[in-house]
């Protein structure tokens, strides 16, 4: 499935190719390679554990950005029945970097909103590489308010390098659009669940991220900026992005340790791009009990908890 191969994945893929070749040989020539295959398979399993069990933050960034990584659209297909996409912000246009709509999650009507990247160049251009303009955030907010009206929980999938930076985005108030989403989400009278599925880049990610529960897929990342921008701002050297990822504390585990996210959703060994179905199932399994719990809360309690969750973030000294 993976057309794009990351360097550190290559030994594994080569091994897997070799196994496939031996199988083919066995079938075509009738020579028995079963012993060799078994040995290689064992080695592949070990290698897999070795590679994916000890990923560096930078490697996780690469997995999070993997061209084949499942997108919000893939998870919608897998998890949301009767999905109807709803378009536009009712003010300027329809931003294709954000997908939103209504459907059923495990039988229950929900509103789903997510950043949406493409998987190849043409799609990516259409989706602006998952970098929304203000109208994208305003569409998201419109759908959230609609969800509030009809008492539907909101499910957000976060996957963006960041809000788009460009002339039009500035003219139409990128900052205002993000700010408004943050403020409105903090008092939205319906449960909100946010799942970082790939890249959680900066304010552009947070603008869909003020959930009662915030989850991260195991290999997703969430940070104040892209590691490239971080390295440029602090060291004036974008090539030090890899080093930046070590400093930034942007992996799911880092964020869980800092109390920023609630739970890490495991990915199948080898990453979400190697098994869409299992990943989608893991997401469903992780969020289901939380959704039930949140739906059971009174609004006052729901909102008080959400408020407290974000109000309490920060590390400082009080002398």
């Amino acid at each position: 499935m993976a057309n794009t191969v990351l360097d550190f994945e290559r030994p594994l893929l080569e091994l897997e190719e070799k196994i496939a070749e031996l199988r083919k040989f066995t079938d075509e020539k009738g020579i028995d390679f079963s012993e060799e295959i078994k040995t290689l398979e064992k080695r592949a399993r070990e290698l897999k554990k070795d590679i994916y069990g000890n990923l560096t933050p930078w490697q996780r960034v690469l997995i999070a950005r993997h061209a084949e990584r499942p997108t919000a659209e893939d998870y919608i297909k897998a998890l949301i029945a009767d999905f109807i996409e709803l378009h536009g912000d009712r003010s300027f246009g329809d931003d294709k970097a954000i997908i939103g709509g209504i459907g059923r999650f495990q039988g229950r009507p929900v509103t789903v909103i997510g950043h949406l990247k493409g998987k190849e160049t043409k799609q990516n251009i259409k989706r602006n590489f998952g970098m929304p303009h203000p109208e994208g955030y305003r569409k998201a907010l419109r759908l959230m308010k609609q969800a509030e009206k009809f008492k539907r929980p909101v499910l957000c999938f976060i996957d963006t390098p960041g809000a788009y930076c460009g002339v039009g985005a500035e003219e139409r108030g990128q900052g205002e659009a993000i700010a408004r989403n943050l403020m409105e989400m903090s008092t939205l009278k319906t449960p909100v669940i946010a799942v970082v599925i790939g890249e959680g880049g900066s304010g552009g990610a947070l603008a869909l991220g003020m959930g009662d529960r915030v989850f991260m897929l195991e290999n997703s990342v969430y940070s104040i900026s892209s590691p490239e921008a971080f390295a440029t701002i602090l060291w004036k050297d974008a090539t030090r992005a890899g080093e930046a990822t070590e400093k930034m504390k942007m992996t799911a585990r880092d964020l869980q340790e800092m109390g920023i996210i609630d739970e890490i959703i495991p990915e199948p060994l080898g990453g979400a791009h190697r098994d869409y179905e299992t990943t989608a199932r893991n997401i469903a399994t992780a969020i289901q009990p939380h959704l039930e719990e949140l739906i059971g809360l009174r609004f006052e309690e729901l909102l008080a908890n959400r408020y407290q969750k974000f109000r309490s973030i920060g590390v400082y000294q009080e002398g």
């Binding site: 104040i224 974000f310 920060g314």
Partner: peptide, 19 residues
């Protein structure tokens, strides 16, 4: 930048209080 995600989350914090 030096405070990473904690700094980003101050956007959420301040906006919540303003609400």
């Amino acid at each position: 930048m030096q405070e990473g995600i904690l700094a980003l989350m101050q956007m959420a914090k301040t906006s919540s209080v303003i609400a």
